[in-house]
């Protein structure tokens, strides 16, 4: 038996916002430690890794590790039945091929129960090493979102360059070229507004911009996000959900043919 209750049920809605344009179906790995997911996009260029710790839930019970396959388009439809302030309980009986989602209003005056069929999904699991990155930049997630949206109307690829002075996003297209630099800035009162650059070595990599726009759909999960870069390795774009877990996106850089 698997059962887990989230007081802030809309966390799952926010997570789905960031996932559904990248992955249409995925296996959720349920274990006593929590819920995780790893999936590649259809073109196998990007990878998403989600981790929600068991203690992020109000009641968490997982009797045995199990993978449950879900169509994320259908899951997003089901989640429309949940109010933004509703609690959300997920239940999956080991002997059944479905999952039950229960949405309850905080005042306990509305109760919705939806059952959704599970599916068998063949998925390839990749081992992601704990890299030491050449550069890690933390910045407000809204700012990152705005930058990649703005640049995507100018070009298709973005060159990300980190030096001790800051992080520069560059693109070019028919319109012209654009460079946006964010310098390290820790003068604001709120830490969530800070931009910090942790640099081992300067690094410059080029990526398909549309993926960054998709990653930025997780902006509502966290005020801060981080970009971790190493020469000739996939970038890691992370949205941490406090001590509840994280969603991490990996994207292969474009390399010289």
């Amino acid at each position: 038996m698997f059962e887990a209750k989230l007081i802030q049920g809309n966390l799952i809605k926010k997570i789905m916002e960031g996932l559904k344009d990248l992955v249409t179906e995925a296996n959720f790995d349920l274990s006593p430690g929590g819920v995780s997911l790893q999936a590649m996009d259809s073109s196998h260029v990007a990878l998403v890794a989600l981790m929600l710790r068991g203690d992020a839930f109000e009641n968490y019970r997982c009797d045995r590790p199990r993978s449950i396959g879900m169509n994320l388009v259908n899951l997003s439809k089901v989640l429309k039945c949940a109010g933004n302030d509703d609690t959300m309980t997920l239940k999956a009986d080991d002997t059944q091929n479905n999952i039950t989602l229960v949405f309850e209003s905080q005042a306990e005056d509305k109760y919705a129960e939806v059952q959704m069929e599970l599916m068998d999904i063949d998925s390839e699991h990749l081992g992601i090493p704990d890299n030491t990155y050449d550069a890690i930049v933390k910045m407000p997630s809204a700012q990152f979102s705005q930058i990649v949206k703005d640049l995507s109307s100018i070009g298709d690829t973005v060159t990300v360059s980190v030096t001790k002075d800051g992080i520069t996003f560059s693109t070019s297209g028919d319109v012209g070229t654009a460079h946006i630099t964010c310098k390290q800035n820790t003068s604001m009162e709120k830490e969530a507004d800070h931009t910090t650059v942790n640099l081992e070595h300067p690094v410059t990599l080029t990526f398909a911009l549309r993926y960054f726009v998709t990653f930025a759909k997780s902006t509502s999960l966290s005020h801060q996000m981080s970009i971790s870069l190493s020469k000739e390795l996939p970038v890691m774009v992370e949205y941490a959900m406090g001590d509840m877990g994280h969603i991490r996106f990996y994207l292969a850089p474009k390399i010289d043919d």
Partner: peptide, 14 residues
Amino acid sequence: PKGQPPISSFFARA
């Protein structure tokens, strides 16, 4: 020109 390698070429299968 820059090519786009698959993500699996960077991470080994688990």
